[in-house]
Simulated scan of single mutants.
Amino acid sequence: MNSDELVQKVMERLLKQFEKESLNKYLVVGEELLDYGNAKITNDTNDYSSVTGVIANGFAWESLFRLRNLVTISEEEKLVLKGLLDNKSIIIIQPEKQPANKLIQVKVEETLRELKKIGVILLHAVELKDHLNTINQSKERESMTKSTSTKKKLITVDVLRNEYSLDQLTEFKQESNMIITALAKDYLRDNNIRMV
């Protein structure tokens, strides 16, 4: 294996690792759920800055009424509101039990509509796994499309010697998909070949 192949393999591994790390990671507040699908999950509020979203479970209707009005009293509610303000994905698992009072049911429907308007995703617990898997699958597809459409070519001294007729060149055109090593740039400069 020559140096070009080694550098290329190292770059490919780094890109793959970066793509894996770029999958969505969620902070779970409130009650734990059993299944999050293939999503990355943390319960540590110190990880807040590294998450793409917040999943809130176990909130009572009173919490949703407060969040609708951007008012909080618990730490969990504060994290959800902070997530909204920071433009993170907010998923709230709806309470299972509906209020018995018909007038309150109307307020519940209004609250759900208002929360959706400000970007909250409202789900039932059984829908969460499929929702998270769908998001991660589409993100994986998107990253695969990006990586295939913007594949970079590494230009090293060996590549210059083997793939280009340098004795006939006075200019070397650097294309947008090229990464040129410092040694390759020095090599071009030493051979009086201008980079454009």
Rank of each mutant, 00 (worst) to 15 (best):
V120H: 05
S176M: 00
Y187G: 01
G119P: 11
Y187F: 15
R141F: 10
E76N: 15
K16R: 05
L188H: 07
Q94E: 14
V159W: 13
M178I: 06
K88L: 14
S22N: 09
I155Y: 09
N101G: 03
V157M: 04
S165F: 05
V54K: 04
L6P: 00
G119H: 10
S149M: 14
F172Y: 15
V120F: 03
K102A: 10
L160C: 07
D167N: 12
L112M: 14
Y164S: 10
R141V: 02
Y48L: 15
D167L: 10
L166C: 02
F172C: 08
L23I: 05
G37P: 03
S143G: 09
K82Y: 13
V28T: 01
L34Y: 07
L154D: 02
L84S: 06
T134L: 07
I135S: 03
E114G: 05
T42C: 09
L14R: 08
Y164T: 07
S89I: 15
V80Q: 05
D186V: 08
S74V: 08
D190G: 11
V80S: 06
R189Q: 14
M144Q: 15
K116P: 09
L169N: 07
E171A: 07
K25D: 00
T145G: 12
I135P: 03
T45K: 06
N24D: 08
E142H: 11
T156F: 07
K151I: 04
N162W: 04
L169H: 02
K185S: 09
V71L: 13
I121W: 01
N191A: 03
L132P: 05
E32D: 09
Q105C: 12
A56T: 06
L169A: 14
T52P: 01
K173I: 13
V51F: 04
I41Y: 07
N38F: 00
P99Q: 15
H131A: 10
E62Y: 09
L27M: 07
K82H: 13
K129W: 03
T52F: 09
Q105P: 04
L123I: 06
I193C: 04
F172P: 00
V126K: 14
V7L: 06
G53C: 03
L84C: 13
A60F: 03
A184R: 06
D186H: 06
N162C: 07
E142K: 12
T72Y: 15
E109K: 15
S22C: 04
S143T: 08
N69L: 12
R68S: 13
L122V: 10
Q94G: 06
I104V: 15
N162G: 08
Y26T: 07
R161P: 00
N136P: 01
T148G: 01
L6D: 00
L132W: 08
L115R: 02
Q94I: 12
E109N: 15
L84H: 02
N38E: 11
I193P: 02
S143R: 15
N177S: 12
K146M: 05
K25W: 00
Y164Q: 07
S149Y: 07
S149G: 09
E110F: 03
K129F: 02
A39F: 04
V29S: 02
V196C: 06
S74Y: 10
Q174A: 13
G83E: 01
M178A: 12
L115P: 14
V126C: 02
